[in-house]
Write a protein that binds this DNA or RNA. Structure first.
Lengths: 239, 239
DNA sequence: CAGTGGTCTAGACCACGTT
DNA sequence: ACGTGGTCTAGACCACTGT
């Protein structure tokens, strides 16, 4: 266990809050928590900051620290996960890998992934379903140089993001997305079992690691009658 | 000047980076910055954390602190602002207030704003244009209790969010959005000058203050041929 | 006024990456 | 071995909220 002290505090506090406290209830003061756990106030503040960032608590200057609404902690500033979203909506998610191939990047992909034109990329195509209803088609492009040893087997029981971070040590730090509405192509309409010329949601996502290198470019088409894109984030005030 | 020390450091460093440094370049170490500015290392870390959160720099354990891509700093974990987005795309934004009225909440609104059924709400309707092309219709609902003295005049020269935060001390802390694609209604199509039955983007946003109280509910309809919803955020790792 | 979170200091040691 | 950022201590004072 190389876990820092404050993260242990985070775990302790989190489980204590979930078990014994309700929304709006006031926590002990920072000084008192520090004394109880026999750590410095700085460490307590780090733990509370972490809990605030993940949406479990909020602090008010001069008043104290309080438990958040229970609804808040889910998927806060997280990369969108179809699987997690569907689970939270009480649906059973399912993902089929339709394609796994390596090819040379064209102009568009090389600029998205900031690699040289012609450098190899891995292309993954997923069909995602919820309660057996097809919901979205996802095409993901990875720079081959960073994921050259990726195999089908890696993706068998793990999400792409966990493989990227655990096996290849490429964690997502920054995400840039753009979303638009358009009419679905006939081919995609057939895959998603919707009528031709239906409206659909188109999501473009580029993810960067901490060194600001693109590690993923994803293009999604989602059927509009079933699928809603949800997310939450903590607004970062400019001071 | 009640600005804390570390925020002054943020300003100094930010302007220094923008003037004299380029992406990927390494900054001085934390200890050296502390010495130069004659502050403690803790204060330097606070300033650097702030700059990392807003996307100007990134830190790597054992290596140092580096300047980010120039493209990154815009609109990071910020509430979506039509005006800012259009400006950054080189377009001239324009906002027309079409409606300003107070009425009693129905079931849907009272649940969205967590107020009692029948409590008063303010309804604002905006038409937003870019380069004189109508782009989206925005209907915003505010709980009357928190903004009872809001006047048309307040909105004349200021954005709604700045009025909410500066005049009414209601700053946005948490945002929850959902996005879907659908077909536009005939009425909205006429307002946006698009053909009937065009696809459109529908955005629902509820914003909360630090006390987790809803302070705004907004419903947007955007034309799909012109409008793309862009945003960026720092991914918050679960540890 | 007391109590809270927010800022700040001056130290210390640890974990990571490079030389 | 050295320099980096990450964690941590034990204090201090400030700013805000309530009584």
């Amino acid at each position: 266990m190389k876990k820092p002290l404050y993260l242990k505090l985070v775990s302790s506090l989190k489980s204590h809050i979930q078990k014994n406290m309700h929304k709006g209830q006031k926590l002990l003061g920072e000084r008192e928590i520090a004394e109880r756990f026999n750590v410095s106030r700085y460490t307590v503040r780090q733990a509370l900051d972490e809990l605030e960032k993940t949406g479990y608590i909020y602090k008010v200057h001069g008043k104290g620290t309080f438990v958040s609404e229970k609804s808040v902690p889910t998927a806060l500033n997280e990369v969108y996960s179809f699987t997690e979203q569907m689970k939270s909506l009480g649906k059973v998610p399912e993902t089929n890998l339709l394609e796994f191939k390596v090819f040379n990047s064209d102009k568009r992909l090389s600029s998205k992934l900031k690699i040289n034109l012609g450098n190899k990329v891995i292309r993954l195509k997923f069909l995602r379903k919820a309660d057996q209803v097809p919901m979205m088609i996802e095409k993901t492009y990875l720079p081959f140089a960073k994921f050259s040893t990726l195999t089908l087997n890696d993706l068998e029981n793990n999400s792409l993001y966990s493989v990227m971070s655990k096996t290849f040590h490429q964690s997502i730090h920054l995400v840039s997305e753009s979303i638009r509405a358009c009419l679905i192509s006939n081919q995609d309409a057939d895959l998603l079992s919707v009528e031709h010329h239906s409206p659909c949601l188109e999501v473009n996502r580029t993810s960067y690691n901490k060194l600001q290198e693109p590690i993923e470019y994803t293009f999604c088409i989602a059927r509009s009658d079933q699928f809603v894109y949800n997310y939450k984030y903590i607004h970062h005030d400019k001071k």
